[in-house]
Design a protein around this nucleic acid. Structure first.
Lengths: 209, 209
DNA sequence: ACGGCGCGTAATGTATACACGACGGAGGTC
DNA sequence: GACCTCCGTCGTGTATACATTACGCGCCGT
């Protein structure tokens, strides 16, 4: 793998996992040394992260890890709602029904509260949507949203009962897509995202108090 | 201005204007020499263009200007519809009414068929939407769509009567936002985009025959 | 004659050297 | 004593030199 790719992947993971916290300064020389690459590929990694919106240049000389506040989360979910409701609508019109029928069954069978395996199921669901929608522009926009979403999920660790509810909501969405009902798929997605962001914002305001 | 920025801006303009046509190979050394910068900033420019989707790496060694076909246009407009209907909806809830009332009047007053000045009005309308929506994530996604849209507009030069119709559609959208009617703004945007993409696709299929 | 392997070349990936600009500290002056 | 200015230093922007890798061509073997 190329050095620039490695540096990007490493920094991305560290930012998403919180190892590098918001506000932390990322100097070229410092990070290049730490990651064992030279400044050229590291610069490439930093620029990619900046265009992703995960780091920001606060001054012409200093790049810091971007923070996420409540307003960012609201804004992110506005975009996510626009993209995912449309994606669900298109998927309902185009998807192979069996794929989503199978996914609906998997969501119905979720009983463990293991967040990691649940998120991995979500990832497969997202991939199935991307595949069904078959739209590179839309998938690209969704990829960007999901990149940020990882950090949001980390900030507000979902509670087990929210995960259970989420599984039920996803089951409905998957069933709607499998049944070829665009409106239902879109509206179920809207509802799901409303519930998700409400839970997250509640968890955060609690935490602050 | 930084060399990498200049190189990016120049290449972006040349790709959007068609000076660099789809399929054209962009070698690092060749382009660096032509643009009078060294390979390092040029590589940065190429990577940004690649992440924008304006160039693609066909093999590990050759970067070419991306093409746009009819399916791409359909896909682009699906994303555009998702983003702009939501943006119009949010703008209707948030915008300063006077701004959009003034824009509605400008659209009503359009009578010249000068495409350049019309597109400049569109650009101000887009900026007003971005400003009203106040959502960096959504604006970022829209910026990407608009980048590609420039090329699509060039491919299918709008005819004067379509521009007149477009002005009317925009007037309605602006009035809906000024009136604070989210549903009307969203649906009028949906209609506008439907008409826009239909015209473009018709123009292209004619051209091919 | 066709296919595979190996070498040469060319282009990209990476490292480093150089240059410019900005920030901070210290010294001088008012 | 405080403020302004100048110089030093650090960090990034760019260029270039070096390493690496992939592709093509030719040769050899089958």
């Amino acid at each position: 793998m190329r050095a620039g790719e490695r540096a990007y992947a490493t920094l991305l993971d560290e930012i998403q996992s919180g190892t590098l916290s918001p506000g932390m300064v990322l100097g070229e020389v410092e990070q290049a040394t730490r990651l064992g690459v030279s400044r050229t590929p590291l610069r490439e990694a930093l620029r990619r992260l900046a265009s992703d919106g995960l780091v920001v240049q606060t001054s012409p000389r200093v790049t810091v890890v971007a923070g996420i506040d409540v307003d960012d989360i609201r804004a992110l979910f506005e975009l996510r709602r626009a993209l995912e409701t449309e994606a669900a609508r298109l998927a309902a019109a185009r998807a192979e029904r069996r794929v989503f029928a199978a996914l609906a069954r998997e969501f119905a069978d979720v009983d463990t509260v293991d967040a990691d395996s649940y998120y991995s199921l979500i990832a497969r669901f997202d991939a199935a949507i991307d595949n069904a929608v078959d739209n590179a522009y839309l998938s690209g926009a969704l990829r960007s949203v999901r990149t940020h979403l990882v950090r949001v999920r980390r900030m507000a660790r979902d509670n087990p009962q929210r995960l259970t509810a989420s599984a039920g909501e996803h089951e409905l969405i998957a069933r709607a897509i499998a049944a070829g009902e665009p409106d239902l798929a879109a509206h179920a997605t809207h509802v799901h995202l409303h519930n998700a962001v409400s839970t997250i914002l509640e968890a955060l305001t609690e935490e602050h108090s």
